[in-house]
Design a protein around this nucleic acid. Structure first.
Lengths: 308, 308
DNA sequence: TCCATTCATAAAGACGCTTTATAGACTAGG
DNA sequence: CCTAGTCTATAAAGCGTCTTTATGAATGGA
């Protein structure tokens, strides 16, 4: 009263294909008695004789032949389905869906994608760009596997893991007096017209917090939505801008200068944001592994250990 | 390093469907730890996490969901294939392909088919008619599952099993002198003009042998191919005919009389002819069982025990 | 006729699966 | 905020099953 097994059916098909128990046993790396038993069990479970065995050969019954004809394509399809699943484990197949900040999307992550394409050509990466808040929302809604953005609050649904600290740079025209300096302090920024990103961005959040820590008020001369417009404002002489180093990289700025902000160093935290309790696909894990590898190689960004 | 099992996949689908290990365990009549182990084995075999388990619920991973979507219809189809095979065992489905003599095809076997249709409506019987020689050939060629006909020689390919002895009757016009008798002897037949079937039929074979046993020569006044023409010849006064009782039944003969032939009783053997070493389908077995039942009920035919 | 090959069978051992018992974790309700 | 209930994970033990080894029976070819 035992039930039908995949092994039994695979054994049956092998015997039908080869017309012999011993030949099938060799192919399946089993002994011949094992196949005899398996086939008997299969026939008992089905209640039907599938093979007519003489002492020399084994030929399928009519019912057995019909069964084999119907079964073979089914098991073949099952095998392809199983292989397709296993391809995810071996990274031969897979999709990484992530949301990240525009600055990271255009500087750090393309390198990650390029490396991943070399090591695992079958993977496809889909990157959505958004500012910190929406990044968290997209993760929460399940639209993406994970997000890389500014620090969000850890609630029951989101799990945040610090990745590195992105230094914020001061951008100004080369004619400015700071051009001769090699760094500026945070306190000095309070005395110049500042151009800052608008309120809901991670950069602004970091600047606000740093100023508050020193007891200074934040009074931006102007707010900008995108880093591009902010750069334009600086170039037009509206003031001095604050931008993350990752954003500065991509902008070729011949007439501007950038200086690190010190005393204390001004950075914005970049974190991995993922749904709590949800595992990542092997593809996503591979992506993150390469990302951490890239981060470790860069001395300008301050990487942190993988542990939470 | 164990391989993927049907049980594991069925368990996986049940858990996905119900969203819970314990619920699936109840449905599958298992304990919850068993399912935990099975799913772990499945995930290990595939190398991929299929379910994200919190302590409250189990939700499929994206890969797990894809897998379940592809797997469910496959297993459903597999189940229908298995059921279709099992239907042969329960006689809900099946085909009986047989070859037999015209006389049996029109007298004994229709009753068998009728009874079979009542007890197993799903079975379909295909009956081919032929004389004894071709019946054996059709069995040998595998065109039919078995044959019911005159005795053929048992060689390596054919297996012959005696079923019953069909009495041969003497047919004559009611005006004939035999009309008052209730039986005739074989020896008496040597002194009347005989109408016999042609040489390759089982009837002729039986008559020839019986005459030879008595040392009498066989001198038919006329030979006929079909029983119909033989009856016509008798009716035309060409002589007295010898026909099997099963053939006489179907011919409504108001102007003719039939008498059993005795001393010794003249019969032709009817046997089951099947391919050696080939098993019969459950449908064919059922057919034969009903046939033997019908034969046992009839006192006019001499049934024999089922043993060879 | 003899030998080699094939399938069937029996017994023993190994392996895997299932169950029982228990722990850890989260939710709901008071 | 705490407790009760529920769900999954884990460990150990028992059981069943499957595989292997050894052997028999039968067939076909040399």
């Amino acid at each position: 009263m035992t039930s039908v097994t995949l092994r039994q059916m695979r054994a049956f098909l092998a015997i039908v294909r080869l017309g012999s128990f011993t030949a099938a046993a060799r192919q399946l790396h089993l002994t011949q008695p094992a196949l005899t038993v398996q086939l008997r069990q299969l026939e008992q479970a089905l209640g039907v004789r599938l093979l007519d065995r003489t002492t020399r050969t084994a030929t399928p019954t009519r019912i057995g032949a019909e069964f084999a004809r119907a079964l073979a394509p089914l098991l073949a399809e099952l095998d392809t389905v199983l292989e397709r699943v296993q391809d995810h484990a071996t990274l031969r197949t897979g999709r990484v869906d992530l949301a990240t900040l525009p600055s990271l999307a255009s500087t750090v992550l393309p390198e990650v994608i390029a490396r991943l394409r070399v090591s695992s050509p079958g993977l496809r990466v889909r990157m959505r760009e958004a500012v910190t808040g929406p990044v968290g929302e997209m993760v929460r809604a399940g639209l993406v596997d994970f997000g890389i953005g500014g620090s969000v609050a850890e609630d029951g649904e989101l799990e945040v893991q610090h990745l590195f600290d992105d230094p914020l740079l001061l951008i100004f025209p080369r004619e400015h007096g700071f051009a001769a300096r090699c760094s500026v302090t945070l306190r000095e920024l309070g005395e110049v017209p500042l151009l800052l990103p608008e309120a809901n961005s991670g950069i602004r959040h970091a600047v606000d917090q740093a100023f508050a820590a020193l007891g200074l008020p934040v009074q931006p001369a102007q707010e900008a939505v995108s880093t591009g417009t902010l750069v334009g404002m600086v170039r037009a002489g509206l003031g001095l801008g604050v931008l993350p180093s990752t954003a500065v990289e991509m902008q070729v700025i011949p007439d501007l200068r950038a200086l690190p902000i010190g005393g204390p160093p001004l950075t914005r935290p970049i974190a991995l944001v993922r749904r709590a309790g949800r595992s990542l696909s092997p593809a996503a894990e591979a992506f993150l592994a390469v990302l951490r590898e890239c981060l470790a190689r860069r001395s300008d960004l301050q990487p942190v250990s993988q542990g939470d």
